[in-house]
Design a binder for these strands. Structure first.
Lengths: 342, 342
DNA sequence: CTGAAAGCGCTTACAG
DNA sequence: CTGAAAGCGCTTACAG
């Protein structure tokens, strides 16, 4: 653990000069610069970020606040963010709230809010130049103060705060496209297994779905919508409800708002001796690993997680560099993955 | 961003007293302690870790070095570690090497080694009390110096360094149990789809498998072993090889060293009009999400990722507290998950 | 182009 | 029980 002081002694210069070289200041002669750089390499000296951050104003680091690392979406989101940050020569420091384990996935809990607020303070003390908040799932995030001294970007969720840009998936268009696809395959008797009625995803997707049907002059009011609680069992139950409703005709396609519920629909169909993709078309959402292992492989919408991460970081750098951004709410398009379930 | 100085002024005490209170020193009168604590709460003061870590010797923080956050195993490992750390009142600071994206998963690359070494320096500058290294997959890790001033623990991989404890899955026993299970189900013509011949996993598992067969007086030399490169396509290919080998009889069970390869074996069986679990028993490994969505649901071995994380952190705290540990290489047992594929 | 000095927000002996 | 002072390893005006 060699310090600037020792390094300076070794190089025969002052610590100020070392610092200037390390920070790319232009006021150092090429000669001493090279000499110092060489000795730095020899000694393996690494500056102590702790110390420099305490003093510096620009730290070239972004703070990451992570709702929960174990959310299936989080690692890829973070990876996309790191991609851009590293390219920009920025470091990253991350804090994991562990909302699943510690707060039962309830951001409205007081302990969660307190933790979040204390973590924001920490990050500011760290002199981060910006904060990216990474939600475990799409929701309205409400507890980030608007008057923070650094820019904030929310990834994978939404916020009403006008000063906080958000980067999300484009639920509306994803559902719109899905409906179009189904129609193009001659499916007209449609049903939807949603996540939860209160979910933002559900609302946006239903809008997109409805608009596509409208354009094709199909009566949207006839499509059955049953929420499936985002899990396999819920998908099973919803599928059961849809198929055993004797008041309306059996649908020829079911759009499930995630792959897990689609798998639940598969379960029910198989149980009834029906074959997904043959007797009834099924479409999923997320393109989780599971989807291509289902039988038949599930046609689904891929969420561009890494891309969302990248975009969030890009918006952050625009803000940091004071570029004009009219990007309050960026929507990243999903990618349709056609497999065998339609 | 109120500081000790302002806080001290507000409380009418010195900054030293504030510090003593915050660090639980016993040399402060109960009265002033309560008064200060109250004002801390009112003002929402949070100490600046940056500054305190620069000065303090005991920082109550553990450094985490993560091979790659996007490895399927990493989030749960980290979650287990955090569990124990938070219980112990320790914070955590993590660095993501991104070995997949940046070094093509090749730890032998020089850039990887340099990055690792610089990150270790950073963590030491951070005054972490210990470092936990979290591998993306099981391998021998070679580039952690033995003479670090703080204890190091390696999770999910192995190292020869005598001073570095490792926490891994118990491959030997997992395979031993699997073989026993297969035998108990009357399966005697066995085959194995391994990962890679050079893999530590393969070696240990084959040992366990062999010992179980020996005990049952079954000739191990007759079991076909084909490496499947850990992925679905490889599993498919390996299964094909096994079933089209005309020199030996068709096996009645195939043990695949991960779930993905088991899925590949499923693929091949279906292609040949055979039904996994009925015509040929298949067993997987990992208990990835995929396994319970396969048709039929895959019998497999669950890797106790969170538990490995917990154990690694526990060993770390033993080391930090100078407790005797004879735990050079801890093996955490896997959990057998019986489903429908045997 | 170079260096002496002040200071970032804390902790740690030490003196009282 | 309390506080003044030194110092952690840097960066930042500022003077030369």
């Amino acid at each position: 653990m060699i310090t600037v002081k020792e390094l300076a002694a070794r190089c025969g210069v002052s610590i100020a000069t070392i610092s200037n070289i390390l920070n790319g200041k232009s006021n150092v002669s090429e000669e001493t610069k090279q000499r110092v750089l060489k000795i730095i390499k020899e000694t393996g000296y690494t500056p102590n970020y702790m110390a420099s951050r305490l003093r510096a104003t620009k730290t070239k680091t972004i703070g990451l606040i992570i709702d929960d690392l174990t959310a299936f979406s989080t690692p890829s989101l973070v990876d996309g963010i790191l991609d851009i940050c590293e390219n920009a020569g920025y470091k990253t420091v991350s804090e994991n709230l562990r909302i699943y384990t510690k707060y039962e996935n309830q951001p409205e809990k007081n302990e969660y809010k307190e933790n979040l607020s204390s973590i924001i303070s920490q990050l500011l003390a760290y002199k981060v130049e910006g904060i990216i908040f990474i939600a475990a799932n799409s929701r309205e995030v409400t507890d980030i103060p608007e008057n923070l001294p650094v820019p904030v970007v929310v990834a994978y969720a939404y916020t009403k705060a006008a000063s906080i840009p958000t980067v999300e998936i484009d639920d509306y268009n994803a559902a719109y496209e899905t409906a179009k696809y189904l129609l193009s395959k001659g499916k007209t008797k449609l049903a939807v297994i949603g996540g939860a009625e209160t979910s933002i995803h559900d609302k946006k997707r239903i809008e997109g779905f409805e608009d596509a049907l409208d354009e094709a002059d199909i009566d949207f009011s006839k499509v059955k919508y049953i929420p499936g609680n985002w899990d396999r069992q819920g998908g099973y139950n919803a599928c059961k409800k849809i198929l055993s409703d004797s008041n309306s005709e059996t649908p020829d396609a079911i759009f499930c708002f995630n792959d897990l519920m689609a798998a639940g629909a598969y379960d029910y169909l198989y149980e009834k001796g029906k074959i997904p993709g043959k007797d009834i078309a099924i479409i999923g959402f997320d393109n989780r690993e599971v989807s291509e292992y289902l039988n038949p492989p599930l046609t689904t919408m891929e969420i561009p997680l890494k891309e969302i991460g990248r975009k969030a970081a890009e918006v952050m750098f625009k803000k940091i560099n004071n570029q004009k951004t009219d990007c309050k709410a960026i929507k990243v398009p999903c990618t349709f993955i056609e497999r065998k379930s339609v």
